[in-house]
Amino acid sequence: MRCDALWPVGLPCMVLTAGEARSAQEERWGGLLAAAQAGDSRAYDTLLREVTPRLRQLARARIRDAAEVEDAVQDALMTIHALRHTYDPTRPFGPWMTTIATRRAIDRLRRRGRGAGRESDLDDLPEGAAAVAPVAEERIAARNLRDAVAELPESQRTALRLAKLEDLSLAEASARSGLSVGALKVATHRAMRSLRRRFGVEEGDERADR
């Protein structure tokens, strides 16, 4: 049917056809999932690749951070996989997928909310602790940081741990480590400098990052 015969004005007609296109697409996805339930892995691969942009869109509606969005998309894909037997091919596919994607996005937000609650304390720590603590949104970055700290000389590592991570005063740290206050200062400073250099952070940049 020609659309402009019914609607001389372009816009409502476009909305209508977009809706139709969407429902046709969802019908196709429902069919693909039904085939996947029977074990058709090619149909399943096609389905997951085709729904991913929509999952991303649904996640982005709730989450701003791009890495976090991608995690939510992957969670949604894994949930679709785990729940693929709960889809009834006689029913629309859209709401089924939307509930799953929305749930996973909300879970991400909650988990992140809890994490942020713990992380906020670190802002009160002295300068530099922020750079050592999980600056790393991604686990990989945290891992790299741990490795880098592990490679520091023993004295620098001790100084960093006592002064920056355990937040002891220099006097306490000196008493605990047996190093003089001056030596602690130098070791901490050197440790921070080598970490900064290693991660390509300019001097004075590390707080602006957070």
């Binding site: 339930q37 074990g39 892995s41 691969d45 997951l48 992957q74 894909l77 894994m78 996989h81 037997h85």
Partner: peptide
């Protein structure tokens, strides 16, 4: 990569 992993070796499931 995740999608490839999920779809490889897909087994048929019984609907709820």
């Amino acid at each position: 990569e995740l999608i490839s992993r999920l779809s490889q070796g897909l087994t048929p499931v019984r609907r709820v």
